[in-house]
Lab assay of single mutants.
Amino acid sequence: VTLFVALYDYEARTEDDLSAHKGEKFQILNSSEGDWWEARSLTTGETGYIPSNYVAPV
C-alpha cells in the first residue's frame, strides 16, 4: 500500500477530482497518469484524482 499525506488543501474542480484537506492520508491507486494521481481517501473512502504535487509520502 502506497500512502501519501496532503500537504495543502485542494478543492475538487471536476467530478473526477477528489478534494483533500491538509494532513489527510491517501492510498495511491494509480500514479501513471502524470501530474494527477488516482487516490482513495483513508478518511472518507472516496476515490478520485488529486494533484501529485499536493501530497508527499508518509
Results as ranks from 00 to 15, higher is better:
29 L>A: 05
36 W>S: 07
45 G>D: 04
26 F>N: 00
16 D>C: 15
56 A>W: 09
11 E>T: 12
14 T>S: 14
52 S>H: 07
54 Y>Q: 06
35 D>N: 09
7 L>E: 03
30 N>F: 08
30 N>Y: 08
44 T>A: 02
2 T>Q: 13
33 E>I: 11
39 A>K: 01
20 A>F: 15
11 E>N: 09
34 G>F: 08
37 W>R: 01
5 V>M: 08
33 E>F: 12
18 L>V: 07
11 E>P: 06
24 E>D: 09
6 A>F: 08
24 E>K: 02
51 P>W: 09
19 S>E: 05
23 G>E: 03
11 E>I: 13
38 E>I: 15
2 T>F: 12
20 A>R: 01
20 A>K: 01
3 L>R: 04
19 S>M: 06
47 T>K: 09
44 T>G: 03
21 H>F: 15
41 S>C: 06
1 V>R: 11
31 S>G: 09
12 A>M: 04
51 P>M: 06
9 D>F: 07
6 A>C: 10
45 G>R: 04
50 I>D: 02
40 R>I: 10
39 A>P: 00
37 W>L: 10
51 P>S: 06
56 A>T: 11
21 H>I: 12
13 R>D: 06
6 A>T: 03
7 L>Q: 04
46 E>Q: 14
30 N>Q: 08
40 R>G: 02
44 T>R: 04
4 F>R: 02
57 P>V: 08
45 G>N: 07
40 R>K: 11
41 S>W: 03
2 T>I: 13
51 P>I: 04
28 I>R: 02
14 T>P: 02
56 A>L: 07
27 Q>P: 00
55 V>E: 00
54 Y>I: 15
50 I>M: 04
40 R>V: 09
23 G>S: 02
7 L>N: 02
35 D>S: 09
7 L>M: 08
19 S>K: 06
40 R>D: 00
29 L>M: 07
10 Y>E: 00
12 A>Y: 02
34 G>T: 11
45 G>W: 07
2 T>N: 11
49 Y>P: 02
48 G>Y: 05
4 F>M: 08
3 L>C: 14
37 W>P: 01
3 L>W: 10
11 E>W: 10
10 Y>Q: 00
29 L>R: 04
50 I>R: 00
49 Y>R: 14
5 V>Y: 13
5 V>E: 08
17 D>N: 09
25 K>L: 15
56 A>K: 09
37 W>S: 02
45 G>L: 06
11 E>F: 11
38 E>V: 15
33 E>D: 15
18 L>D: 00
49 Y>C: 12
50 I>T: 02
1 V>M: 13
36 W>I: 10
26 F>S: 00
34 G>D: 12
16 D>M: 14
32 S>L: 12
21 H>M: 11
14 T>M: 10
24 E>Y: 04
57 P>K: 07
54 Y>W: 08
30 N>S: 11
28 I>K: 02
54 Y>E: 00
53 N>G: 11
46 E>Y: 09
49 Y>D: 01
37 W>I: 07
56 A>S: 09
38 E>F: 15
29 L>N: 04
11 E>A: 10
45 G>S: 05
17 D>I: 08
43 T>V: 11
22 K>M: 09
4 F>Q: 01
55 V>K: 00
43 T>Q: 09
26 F>E: 00
56 A>Y: 08
32 S>W: 09
6 A>Y: 03
57 P>M: 09
35 D>E: 12
46 E>W: 07
28 I>C: 05
54 Y>A: 14
48 G>I: 05
51 P>L: 07
57 P>F: 07
52 S>I: 07
